[in-house]
Design a protein around this nucleic acid. Structure first.
Length: 468
RNA sequence: GCCCCCAUCGUCUAGUGGCCUAGGACACCACCCUUUCAAGGUGGCGGCACGGGUUCGAAUCCCGUUGGGGGUGCCA
């Protein structure tokens, strides 16, 4: 437990899903804690009653584990729950009140707005600073913001100055006596001896207030680092409403954790050298906050998908087969899949694509896609080729090479190359015009099934009505 | 409105005063390979927002403009 290294923290509030931006922030903290021999402290900020469900915490822990941040790791500490420390937050607030660093105010939000409107200056104007109010129902405790400048030293942004003239006396305790985020956050960070606060840029405007609180409470502020936010194509902060932000969703759609982690780390930062696909161990060694970019980064699903495809192809064949097993129906014959797995591995970018690519190998009959069929059958020789192939395939040797040679020769007799000749056979047998290499698939399917499908297709008219 | 942050190809980035005729990746295009589709290979397209300085020399330093973003709750 006792560790003299730096202490980082990740402090999400439970929301029911894990935001990809949060994942990147967690990864930054994790990389640093691991490399520096420090700690990664997980604190669930559950003080908002509206956001408080036990299963949401489980979701956070599962998501972290998926991206390699394990509660089993010695560098991991927690989770702590902010709601359990409410009495410490209140005690700190009372200390501030007693020493005159905070004061009570009985103005309602409406009254504050009216005063602001009347004076033309937005925000709270410090009306109750010297009214000597004590605690009472509906009285909020406000921090007496000292005049002057607050200089925030930020590892990614350098020195940022804030003039107190623009920092209002913010609320510490609500009218019902419960602590606010700014206070709770600081008190917890102090109690947990956090040395480095690495979080998203949206918290930068909070930082002078929190730093004042650290100082008012008699402690040295931590090292701050505000990393740029992740944005969508409209350059707006990624939001649950507009964008696909849930880590769980990407996971369910067949994205690999390694690919996700690697991609996330290239947003706002890049490993040295000419390749971005690098193992975590290398990232962990190389990552520096000082090298993080200052501008928001677009979360590009297309690039993520490209990374994912690369990671899928990097898997040793047997690893791919094992991984794929979780993504195909349980009743599918694993031996059959294994025979074509290498053909699939180079053709998918996400794990969910696997099943749809080879489903025709596992069904008794095949649904023919009308568009594919109609297009293929437009070729004048298509029907004749299919018909002849059905005859040749009754008697030829049943292996990939023979199947290919026979169709190639047959095609020549009709004046077409193999590329053209295979088309009607492909649609007839697989139902689609694209898919894994045909002859391998035929071999695996077996003569009986292939012939049955070809004959059934021969019964079809040249033009099929579209499904819908 | 006010406060703060930011600005290299469409996107993610390398670059920290001369190695830059600005490098890589994704996307896109072409060609090669090829049984469809991929994968792979080769090549191409494409950028230092603008204007002033500083300097022998600026993508790199300073100022301004413009353009983005974040914040502005008795949410976190």
């Amino acid at each position: 437990m006792s560790s003299s290294g730096p202490r980082f923290r990740f402090a999400p509030s439970p929301t029911g899903y894990f935001h990809v931006g949060g994942a990147r922030t967690a990864l930054y903290n994790w990389a640093l804690a691991k490399r520096l021999g420090g700690r990664f402290v997980l604190r669930i900020e559950d003080t908002d009653e509206a956001r408080n469900r036990p299963e949401w915490t489980t979701g956070i822990i599962d998501a972290l584990a998926w991206i390699g941040i394990s509660t089993e790791d010695p560098a991991f500490e927690g989770p702590y729950f902010q709601s359990e420390y409410a009495s410490a937050h209140i005690a700190a607030a009372e200390r501030l009140y007693e020493s005159g660093l905070a004061y009570y105010c009985d103005l309602t939000s409406e009254q504050i707005q009216e005063r602001a409107k009347a004076s033309g200056t937005p925000g709270y104007d410090g009306y109750s600073r010297d009214r000597g109010l004590g605690p009472g129902p509906g009285h909020v405790l406000r921090f007496r913001v000292p005049s002057g400048q607050t200089v925030v030293n930020d590892l990614v942004r350098g020195t940022v100055e804030f003039d107190s003239a623009h920092v209002e006396d913010f609320v510490l305790l609500r009218g019902n006596g419960t602590p606010m985020f700014l206070l709770a956050n600081v008190v917890d960070d102090m109690a947990m001896q956090i040395t480095h606060v690495v979080r998203a840029e949206e918290h930068l405007p909070n930082t002078p207030k929190q730093q004042m609180l650290w100082e008012a409470l008699g402690a040295d502020p931590p090292v701050w680092a505000h990393v740029p936010v992740l944005v969508n194509e409209q350059r707006k902060k990624l939001s649950k409403r507009r964008d696909k932000v849930a880590l769980e969703q990407y996971r369910a759609e067949g994205y690999l954790a390694d690919a996700m982690v690697n991609y996330l780390m290239t947003l706002g930062w890049a490993p040295s050298g000419d390749t971005e696909i690098v193992p975590w161990a290398q990232i962990q060694e190389a990552f520096r906050l000082e090298d993080v970019n200052h501008a928001p980064a677009f979360f590009d699903v297309k690039k993520l998908t490209a990374f994912n495809g690369d990671y899928i192809r990097m898997m040793p064949p047997e690893v791919f087969v094992a991984a794929a097993s979780d993504w195909i129906p349980a009743e599918w014959d694993r031996d059959v899949f294994t025979r074509v797995s290498d053909l699939v591995q180079t053709r998918v970018a996400t794990m969910t694509e696997i099943a749809t690519m080879v489903d025709f190998l596992f069904t008794d009959t095949v649904d023919i896609d009308p568009a594919s069929w109609n297009k293929t059958m437009k070729a004048s020789e298509a029907r004749a080729v299919l018909s002849d192939a059905a005859k040749v395939y009754e008697i030829c040797q049943w292996d990939t090479a023979s199947l290919k040679n026979e169709l190639e020769m047959l095609g020549e007799s009709h004046g077409v190359k193999l590329g053209k000749a295979q088309a009607p056979v492909r649609v007839a047998v697989t139902g689609r015009s694209v898919g894994p290499p045909l002859f391998e698939s035929l071999e695996v399917l077996g003569r009986e099934a292939v012939l049955a499908r070809m004959r059934a297709a021969l019964e079809l008219p040249d033009s099929l009505a579209a499904d819908e």
